[in-house]
Write a protein that binds this DNA or RNA. Structure first.
Lengths: 254, 254
DNA sequence: CGTCATATTGATACACGTCAAGGCGAGTGG
DNA sequence: CCACTCGCCTTGACGTGTATCAATATGACG
């Protein structure tokens, strides 16, 4: 059981899975514990091999057995309607926890697919749960991750039902920037691992609309793009467009 | 501390709070435990007085101290954009858990307001967490509730970005029906405790659109309305419109 | 260097929002 | 018991943001 390798795409099964040797990741760590508890945690974690672009980590309807933490690369999760339409529910970067929507149900409510070559840590949920009884910190962090997911989705609901196309794209770029910054990467220049199509799908927009807004933002000097590379030229203006509170240096007065 | 009454609307403070004497609720219980553990749980729960319509249970930005379970009545949760626009993120009926989005953050990410006279149980989160270390079942149920919230929101994202106005309303009615049925109430005739305006807000539609669709559904013999009372006349057709899989009696063959 | 997915750009259509005007029902007070 | 008021709901006319359709352009990859 402990030696069960991670299976992907219902075809792939690799055997040579290294154990997680360190506490997960180097950036924003979802599960950061002291040395002793970290050791217990890494005992139950399994590191995946490099999953190449387009690989499914799990499919909607698959039995829910584990949650995952992205180690490197990017994942998207999505649901499909009965008409076969796909709705992307989230993008996941290194250090972020995937599959929390499956907690409390027998099966995964979404599919998870890599957007580029990606590696993850797998945490069998049963073991994670019993371990969380002994390690209060782990329990707290696990619930924090779930709370974070809930808040992110609430923000998406707001975006999808109240914001204009322009505000959606601005918000998207701003939040990406923020997440990269938190991980110690550049907040102003980064690579979009997802296609325009996927951005549109996620934001509830047609591809064409996303494309038009990207060009408009470029003309207005807000951003500069070169394929999937993007540079945020005027961050504060972008932030304003996104409809976020303006974070000036001093705003404590009132 | 244990005697602290629930405060509401930043004006209301009642003293005569009864302790939760039984395991919560009678319908779908989010926290159902055996007698002994149930006793421990009710030790930390506090029952609110009857909160009249329009009362805030907590406001966005309030310190996150506790989660709540609806005992009777209805609540809505909502966020506000910087432009002051309100987005309803959920409706909560008896037995359902409110405020889970606050877990892992210092403050409530949404406001919670009663839609009618409502009573709730309050569970101080700190105590709930430490209790969940001793009672594995409670820990599981707490996380299940969070997982459920995540899934509900993912479904809302799909609705908001992919479904037509008609599909949204049909989905809304269908899901309400389902929730009432689960609680042992009629699945075909019930009272909408929220206004048309609130329905529209929740579904990302203008009030007028909701109203028009309600009348259209009536003309087509799908529903019958009489103010806030609603009867689902043709459930299966409504279900089809909602874009849900058709649940015929026998669908096990293939 | 061809092939195919992805991206851009333009022209057109439509679902739904917005604006405006009653209508209906529930309280409230005379 | 009626008249008044005030929210909420309904219905109609109209405008618009964004989807859709269509035609290249661009880039990735073998």
């Amino acid at each position: 059981m402990a030696e069960k390798p991670i299976q992907v795409d219902s075809t792939r099964t690799l055997n040579d899975i290294p154990r997680a040797s360190t506490v997960i990741g180097s950036g924003a760590q979802p599960f950061a514990l002291d040395a002793e508890d970290g050791e217990k945690l890494s005992q139950i974690a399994e590191a995946s091999p490099a999953l190449k672009k387009g690989t499914h980590l799990f499919l909607q309807g698959d039995p829910f057995m584990a949650i995952y933490v992205v180690r490197a690369g990017t994942l998207k999760t999505y649901t499909v309607t009965n008409e076969g339409e796909e709705q992307i529910t989230g993008f996941y970067f290194p250090g972020e926890v995937v599959a929390l929507g499956g907690v409390g149900t027998g099966e995964h409510p979404v599919s998870a697919k890599t957007l580029e070559t990606t590696t993850v840590f797998e945490y069998p949920f049963q073991q994670l749960d019993s371990l969380s009884a002994k390690i209060p910190q782990l329990r707290v962090q696990l619930m924090n991750s779930m709370g974070k997911e809930i808040r992110a989705e609430q923000q998406m609901m707001l975006l999808l039902s109240k914001k204009t196309a322009e505000q959606r794209v601005a918000t998207f770029l701003y939040k990406l920037s923020d997440r990269f910054k938190q991980r110690g990467y550049s907040a102003t220049i980064f690579r979009l691992s997802m296609s325009r199509n996927e951005i549109g799908n996620y934001l509830g927009l047609a591809v064409e609309t996303v494309s038009r807004i990207f060009t408009r933002f470029q003309k207005n000097g807000l951003i500069a793009t070169e394929g999937k590379e993007i540079t945020l030229v005027n961050q504060s203006e972008l932030n304003t467009l996104a409809g976020n509170p303006v974070l000036t240096a001093d705003c404590g007065a009132l």
